[in-house]
Amino acid sequence: MNEALITRLGALDLSLQDNKVNTNDRVLALISACITEGVDQGPSIVEVLARLGFDRRHVGLTLNKGIQQVPVWPNWGRRDDGRYYVPDPT
């Protein structure tokens, strides 16, 4: 696992906490950040967020719940090969 990635995502999570963002919204933001950083497979996303202290089941459920055919922030899509993607910023 890329320690620099964990450090960056940990800093993002601390910033979200400092801004009183709730756990569910933090998970949404961190999943999107993982995908943007190239961590785009479900088990890897769950592993990264678990390393940041999140419950694996919560992350997995959130990941599956956020899948959309035509994703709009804060959701994402999943390609036929199982890789996730986030929408382009508008």
Rank of each mutant, 00 (worst) to 15 (best):
G60F: 01
D88T: 15
Y84I: 01
L52M: 03
V70N: 14
P74N: 07
N75P: 00
G60W: 01
I31Y: 01
T90I: 08
N24M: 05
D18H: 15
I67M: 04
E3Y: 00
G10I: 00
R26S: 08
N75W: 13
V86M: 10
G42E: 13
Y85A: 06
G77C: 10
L49Q: 05
Y84M: 01
S32H: 02
P74K: 03
G60C: 00
F54I: 06
L52C: 02
P89D: 06
L9Y: 11
P71N: 10
V72R: 13
G66A: 11
T36D: 13
R56K: 15
V86E: 12
R83T: 15
I35N: 12
C34P: 03
L9E: 05
S44Q: 15
G10V: 00
G38A: 08
A33D: 05
G66K: 12
L52N: 00
F54C: 04
T7N: 09
T90G: 10
Y85P: 05
S15I: 02
L49E: 04
N75T: 06
F54T: 04
S32Q: 08
G66Y: 07
A33P: 07
P71E: 09
I31D: 02
G77M: 05
P89K: 06
E37T: 01
Q41H: 07
I31P: 02
E3L: 08
V72T: 15
P43D: 14
I31S: 02
L12F: 02
T90Q: 08
L28R: 12
S15N: 12
G38M: 11
D80V: 10
E37N: 12
L49Y: 05
T23W: 00
I6Q: 09
I45G: 06
I45T: 06
T36Q: 13
G38Y: 12
W76G: 09
I45C: 06
N24G: 05
Q68F: 02
D40Q: 06
M1H: 14
A11F: 00
L61T: 11
W73A: 14
I35E: 09
R79K: 14
I31N: 03
V46R: 03
